[in-house]
Design a protein around this nucleic acid. Sequence first.
DNA 1: TGAATTTCTTAATCTAGATTAATGCACAGC
DNA 2: GCTGTGCATTAATCTAGATTAAGAAATTCA
Lengths: 190, 190
Amino acid sequence: MSSFLDILDLDTNPTTEVLALKQKISLKSIKKGRILQRGGDMVSKIYYVKKGLLRSYTIDKKGKEHIFMFAPEDWIIADGADFSSPCQLFIDVLEDSEIEIVDKKLFEEVYISLTLNSDTQRTAAMIKRISVLQERVIMLMSASAIERYEHFTTTYPQIMQRVPQRMIASYLGITPEALSKVKSEQNKGK
Amino acid sequence: MSSFLDILDLDTNPTTEVLALKQKISLKSIKKGRILQRGGDMVSKIYYVKKGLLRSYTIDKKGKEHIFMFAPEDWIIADGADFSSPCQLFIDVLEDSEIEIVDKKLFEEVYISLTLNSDTQRTAAMIKRISVLQERVIMLMSASAIERYEHFTTTYPQIMQRVPQRMIASYLGITPEALSKVKSEQNKGK
DNA sequence: TGAATTTCTTAATCTAGATTAATGCACAGC
DNA sequence: GCTGTGCATTAATCTAGATTAAGAAATTCA
C-alpha cells in the first residue's frame, strides 16, 4: 500500500486540484500518547500510518473503552461518519509515529478524479475493509471469547507483540480479567 | 440507488466489454424461501434487490443461524470474501423478490472503467457500508441487548414490519427468548 | 536508582443472556 | 374444517463473562 502522497506523485501531469490537495496533506511525527481526535468532534480527517501504530476506539456511557481497530504501518484509519456528522471514534497514537493527515471531503473529491490505477487500488482497499468488518461482526455474534482470541492471534500476530493484552481484550469485546481467565483455561487443557 | 443495469444503461456509447457485461447480468423473479448461495460455496455473485427482501447469514458449528444483514428494495447484498475464497455467508429470499445477479469479478473489472458519475455513486455506497458496519461492531461491543434492539427499531423501522422477531433477535446477536424477555422488561418500566 | 504507574493474574461473587421446556397462537396446506 | 408447523411468550435453571478486589510483576520516568 502507498501513502496519499505516494499515490498523488504517480500523477506525472497533475491538475491544479491535485497540486492543491498535495499542499493540504500534512506529514507529521507524533509522540506516543497523543490523541488526534475525540468522539463527538466535528473533525473528518483520514490518517495514513507511515510508521508506528494508531488505534481508534469509542468510550461508552459507563466510561469504558472499546477498541475498533489498530492501524500499524501502511494502514489507513478514519472514522466512518460522513463529513457533516460528528465523529464517533477517538483516534490516538500507541507508538511514536509518522503519519499523513488529510481532510476526508477534500480527499474524496480529488482522489476520485485520478487515474484508473490508483482508484482500482483504493476500491480494492475498501472491498477488503468491508470483508474484514464482515468477519469481525460474525466473530462477535457467533464465537466465544477464546475463539475470538485465537482468531486474533493468527490474523494479527504482529500486533500481538506491540500492544498490552488489555487492549486486545478490548478489541475482542471482553474485559482483561476475562481474557486472562480464558487463556489460563486454554493452557490447562493442553 | 440504481440497479446494475440502470447504471450501465447510462453509458450511451458502451464499449464491447460493457455490452458483454450487460448480457451476463441476469434478472430473476425468485420465490420466498429459495437459498441463493450457501456458506462454503465457491460462488461470488452480487445481488441487487429490485423488489422484495433478501438476507445473509452464517451458521455456526452448533447449527445456529446469525443474520449478517437484511437487503430490502434497492440494496446490494453479497459476501465479502474475494473471488478465490469460498464464501462465508448464506443468502436467501425472505419475500418473493426480483433481483439482478452478476458475477463479482466480472462486475469489478468492467464497472471500474465506467464514467466518473457511476463510480462516485459506487464509492459513496461503499463508504456508507463501512460506516454502517463500524456502527454495528461498536453496538455489538458496547451496548446491551435492549439498547441494540432500540437502535434497530429506529434505524430500520420498515424491516421491523417485514420479518419475524426471531430474525431480529438473530441480527442483534441474541436468542428470541432473550428478546422477548428484555422487551417485556422494557414495557414494565413504562 | 527508586518511586509511581501500568499491567497481568487469580479468586469470589454477580448478572445478562443462553438453554430448556411448556403453552398458546396464527396461519398455510391438505 | 382440521392439522401441522412456525412463531411468540413465560418461567426455571445454567453459564460465560462482568465486576470487584487484591497482590505480584513489569515499565516508565524523575
